[in-house]
Design a protein around this nucleic acid. Structure first.
Lengths: 336, 336
DNA sequence: CCGCGCTACTACAACGTTGTAGAGACGGGA
DNA sequence: TCCCGTCTCTACAACGTTGTAGTAGCGCGG
């Protein structure tokens, strides 16, 4: 069907190795020979067989990106950033989604080996401290994105969650807000994004000389828009008094925004609102959402670099942990 | 490093072919032998080498999805649907994005061969009639998504654009609107989504006994939110009188919605607004957006099925064209 | 008791590529 | 003049898997 090195070699009257040498730009090939081979390649429309190359080299030039859900804009934008960074390093990206349950998350991890990938970027969701040894089973280079839930031997790239949440909360306090809802806590969780962001929120409140009112710390299980909407509905129904909201991601913030507007709460006049993630969409909501830019493209670039370093060789190094810089993006939802 | 069939065979005291037979559930293996082999596999943590399998079988069990941009929610949701459909058929999905320029679109197509994929789903953007022969160069099974711009020999899955646009426009007319803006035309284009949707718009207007006012047909080049916003700003600045908008996709509609609300135009009271695509987000805008559900998950499922059929064998068949059913989803932006 | 079909297995080749070893020609320095 | 290094190219093996052909043993019908 498709041409192989043998076919090209026969057509050009050389050995297959010479054809291979031409393709790989091996220097010691006579110009006339090179031209003859290139003509034959063009003539036969020869394309190297990737499977054979992978078998020989042990490399697929392909990494996996394991994320919960591409419908979630955060992960879609992350995937975009990762794909661009990977392309710059000569790698393709195979995306694997997992559903909310633990089992499918594990299945996605295990699938990496079977797929013949060179390494994976893994955005942890439901696996926890106790699953560290499962991570080691993956058996290939891996870089964790998001929180470092495991004390494992893997590289890790994330934002400064606590500092960012503190900055977000301080921003509202500076705007004169004093009863600020923290929307998105995960009760009992300490080392995940929710725990770290809550710590930043509390630190900012206390730094302002106020005390944290537990009634203002509102749990939201999954951080999707509908969950933010429901949580805000419950808050308003309960008659809680508040003048600011720190939502732990933009989806929650946008869901809450929709419910507040529906109920006649004006933003930012009655309530100032800030989110996390700087989704593309936050520029277009009405009011446009103030948010924390976590440096997503930077996270993607660094993570791909760490992973590729592991793949091409620098094994044995101690696991590295990279914290990227965040940026507070002020928009309409917090400025009177 | 990692165990191969040879290692397992040695450990179990059998030939490599017997190990292979165990792995592939070949029936004629004695139970005791099978158990011995399975024990060795477990012991050595053997995992089949995908590259070697691909080389032998000529199959990678992997398809490409070539789309413009994952940041665009339509394509992110499409990718999600495609990945689920592909998984059900035992295939992984390698996503390749291209930028707005023609060259990167061609590069993405050509990359498919090099990557060793079994086939590709390709969402056409800027290639046109004249590029049909470039498509044939891809040299592997391919299914086109979206418009059939080429008279090429490829399978093709899309929605009923004209009928859907007609239904959308008729919906506004039934609601008593008479000066309806068509937002998103591509002047001169006939066979793409923009041309087909414009035809449906015009058909509905005429079926209602009205005449099409060319001033109400507003071009929007790229169908992103910012472009919809800018187009609507221009429309309002021009002082055009209108009481309804058929936006040719949801992103345009949401961008236009934001501008109208900003300018004090109320929706749906002053202007009724309908979009295309049924993005997840349209449920949460304020007002929630009425839209056309193009049957995206159905499109993805059918496209994957067509592609897999080509991959596993049914060659030589004439190209198939599948039109999926749409559904008008009525929400707040059109109901007084 | 021969031959046939079935079970259970093995040896070998092939998929298409690239690394290694080496051969022949040619030129330059001793 | 001779040796050695460089240029140009080739033959062969190997990456890990699976299809094909074949072997040996066993039971069963004629």
């Amino acid at each position: 069907m498709t041409a192989t090195l043998h076919d090209v070699a026969r057509a050009a009257g050389v050995s297959i190795k010479t054809v291979s040498n031409v393709i790989n730009n091996y220097p010691h090939v006579r110009v006339t020979t090179r031209e003859r081979v290139e003509a034959a390649i063009h003539e036969l429309q020869y394309r190297p067989n990737q499977a054979a190359r992978s078998l020989r080299s042990g490399r697929a030039d392909m990494i996996g990106l394991i994320v919960p859900d591409l419908r979630n804009p955060y992960f879609a934008e992350l995937a975009d950033d990762v794909m661009r960074a990977a392309r710059a390093r000569g790698f393709s990206v195979l995306i694997e989604q997992f559903d909310a349950d633990r089992e499918s998350e594990l299945a996605a991890l295990r699938g990496a080996r079977r797929r013949g990938l060179d390494g994976v970027l893994y955005s942890v969701l439901s696996l926890g401290e106790d699953d560290a040894e499962l991570l080691d089973e993956v058996g290939m280079p891996m870089v964790l994105l998001g929180e470092r839930i495991f004390h494992s031997a893997h590289d890790h790239v994330t934002m400064r969650n606590t500092e960012a949440a503190q900055a977000a909360t301080a921003h509202l306090l500076r705007g004169g807000r004093s009863r600020i809802v923290a929307l998105g806590s995960h009760p009992g969780e300490v080392v995940g994004s929710a725990g770290l962001r809550l710590r930043g929120y509390e630190a900012a409140i206390e730094a302002a000389g106020l005390t944290v009112d537990p009634a203002l710390v509102v749990p939201v299980d999954r951080w999707h828009r509908i969950d933010g909407a429901e949580a805000m509905r419950a808050v308003l129904d309960a008659g809680l008094a508040f003048d600011g909201v720190v939502a732990f991601n933009d989806s929650i913030a946008l869901g809450a925004m929709r419910v507040m507007l529906e109920r006649g709460v004006t933003i930012p006049d009655d309530v100032a609102l800030i989110g996390f993630d700087d989704l593309d969409e936050t520029r277009y909501s009405l009011p446009a959402l103030t948010t924390i830019d976590p440096g997503r493209s930077e996270i993607a670039r660094v993570a791909v670099d760490l992973l590729v370093d592991r793949i091409v060789g620098d094994e044995g190094d101690a696991p590295r942990e990279i914290l990227t810089e965040f940026r507070l993006v002020e928009r309409e939802s917090t400025s009177r």
